[in-house]
């Protein structure tokens, strides 16, 4: 959050009174929107608490946190790329290979277990897989200068293809002490995955929002020319963001193997929800920029929506439509208030 305060004055230094005025107006609108989105979140929680049985129970809230762990880790990885690449959806930072990365890392983990390796080896193998995918993305974007949207799209296809080759499109079951521990319940009957998500988000937030490296990431994403002029290693920071995102994919893969007792097909379906979650995360930040905590909040927002709908026993054919409508409302509110 200190980053927000650091960067905000930069806009005010712009020459011309008009810019000064619009910046102030923009800040007001942003504050209103941030408050608005948090209030909307709170209202939805209250409505569900009053109408949906079991919603407010500790077990249920733990469930939602646990169910959000995989998409949350992926969305946080994507957030780092959005920060370093700038949040223009077409030309800015994006990592479309994340969901496929999770699928391949999970497949690598499950295959390692099937081959008789232990948890330690499998964890390393999955993280190395994720990291390597990040390196390939970094080379394509920073080295070859391909637009991230296209570079990571191509890598996504390669990774999905590798997963098919490795798994032959079948489910690979895996059961190990670590996987059982992660998929079980921890203190207060809350799933271990819930604690994993919170711990991961806090560590990521600490690095991204409160260290000089994090501040540089924002500088590179928002004002690449200024960052370069100030002597920042722009290319290295962007490459680092893709590698960090790749590692998040590998980590999410491990969580997925644990949650699904093995590696399963169809990981690619996670992509769009994760992209939506990461983009939606901006409305939960003070300056409408991607932040780790904002992304965590938007992950939980989506998680609570899905959970609440099921508890309210809304017909399954309506759920994704209503969900999409709510997200559209929040996003259009952002866009309108930004003007």
């Amino acid at each position: 959050m200190s980053v927000d305060i650091q960067l905000a004055p930069v806009i005010r230094f712009d020459p011309g009174e008009a810019a000064f005025g619009s910046a102030r107006g923009g800040n007001l609108a942003a504050t209103a929107l941030r408050a608005g989105s948090l209030i909307a979140f709170a209202v939805i929680l209250v409505v569900f608490s009053l109408t949906a049985p079991y919603f407010l129970s500790l077990g249920n809230i733990g469930n939602v946190l646990g169910q959000s762990a995989i998409s949350g880790v992926l969305a946080i990885g994507l957030t780092i790329v959005l920060i370093a690449g700038g949040s223009n959806v077409v030309t800015g930072g994006i990592d479309l290979s994340l969901a496929a990365n999770m699928g391949l890392s999970a497949a690598v983990y499950a295959t390692a277990v099937q081959l008789g390796y232990g948890d330690a080896t499998a964890v390393v193998a999955a993280l190395v897989t994720g990291g390597l995918i990040g390196v390939v993305n970094a080379v394509a974007v920073v080295g070859a200068g391909i637009v991230p949207l296209l570079a990571t799209l191509a890598v996504m296809n390669i990774v999905a293809g590798l997963e098919l080759v490795l798994t032959q499109n079948t489910v690979i079951p895996a059961a190990t002490p670590l996987l059982t521990a992660v998929s079980s319940s921890g203190p207060f009957g809350i799933p271990v995955l819930a604690y994993v998500l919170l711990a991961f988000a806090l560590i990521a937030a600490a690095i991204v929002q409160y260290t000089p490296t994090g501040l540089r990431l924002y500088a590179v994403g928002e004002f690449p020319d200024a960052a370069r002029a100030a002597g920042l290693a722009v290319r290295r920071l962007v490459a680092g963001a893709f590698i960090a995102s790749g590692l998040c994919g590998g980590f999410a893969g491990i969580l997925s193997v644990s949650n699904l007792s093995g590696s399963t097909t169809g990981s690619g379906e996670m992509l769009l929800p994760v992209v939506v979650t990461a983009l939606l995360g901006s409305v939960f930040s003070r300056r409408l920029v991607p932040t780790v905590i904002g992304t965590l909040l938007s992950t939980l927002f989506v998680g609570f929506l899905v959970n609440g709908f099921q508890l309210l026993n809304i017909s399954s054919v309506l759920v994704s439509g209503v969900q999409g409508l709510l997200i559209l409302l929040v996003v259009s509110a952002t866009t309108l208030l930004r003007k």
Partner: peptide, 15 residues
């Protein structure tokens, strides 16, 4: 979607 299936079963157990 297996992830969704597991999440739905978890929520059903809570219900």
């Amino acid at each position: 979607n297996d992830g969704k299936l597991v999440a739905q079963l978890q929520t059903l157990i809570a219900q």
